[in-house]
């Protein structure tokens, strides 16, 4: 076993360990802020795995977008909605968790069986290494041009929609008739809601 191979193996094992521990932390830790930071760790070790797979461009994109944008966004959201709320106890919560764990274990067994028994046609063509950046760009402007252009519409709409939904200022009139409006559904709820006046906010 050469040094290169053993380094690769050690890197893979260390990265997978941080990945799995981080992922378990994300779903299990009671404190949501810790979970968000661990999610950043998961994203970073994922970028490391991409480097092991000869994909430096995607690794950089992973760090920039996932760690730099998505994770920061999630942290912002946690700060904006950070009310310490004691979660009300649910009957049968533990049973539900165990049952779903069993279901997930079943799914895992299925996925592992498929991954291990399928004769994947390895080895494929030799990797082009750093030439991948050029190849990715060629794909974007040839056979993946349509999704590439559509993705720009998707991002534009996500941006506009997120701003419309999250901004606070609201106009409270019907611009055509000048009647007051409340930006709610026209079909008003008749059944008493949880937060109605007789049942004030907890």
């Amino acid at each position: 076993m050469t040094i290169a191979v053993s380094t690769q193996l050690i890197c893979f094992l260390a990265l997978s360990a941080t990945l799995l521990i981080g992922a378990l932390g994300v779903v299990l830790l009671p404190n949501i802020v810790y979970a968000a930071f661990l999610l950043g760790g998961v994203f970073l070790s994922m970028a490391g795995l991409y480097l092991l797979l000869n994909a430096s461009f995607v690794a950089a994109a992973q760090v920039l977008i996932y760690v730099g944008a998505v994770n920061v966004l999630i942290l912002f959201a946690i700060m904006l909605v950070n009310k310490r709320e004691p979660l009300r106890d649910m009957p049968g919560l533990l049973l539900r968790r165990l049952l779903s764990a069993a279901v997930c274990a079943g799914l895992l067994a299925l996925l592992l069986r498929v991954a291990l028994t399928m004769p994947w046609p390895t080895p494929g063509p030799a990797s082009i290494g750093e030439g991948a950046v050029v190849r990715i760009a060629e794909h974007f402007f040839s056979d993946y041009l349509l999704p590439f252009e559509l993705a720009s519409v998707l991002l534009l709409m996500a941006m506009i929609g997120a701003i419309v939904l999250a901004r606070r200022d609201v106009m409270n009139v019907d611009v055509v008739t000048g009647e007051p409006a409340d930006q709610g559904l026209l079909e008003k709820a008749r059944t008493p809601l949880l937060l109605s006046k007789d049942n004030p906010r907890p």
Binding site: T122, P125, S127, A132, R135
Partner: peptide, 10 residues
């Protein structure tokens, strides 16, 4: 992509 499609990296 790395193991089966090293040349086209789809």
């Amino acid at each position: 992509s790395s193991y089966l499609d090293g040349a086209e990296v789809r």
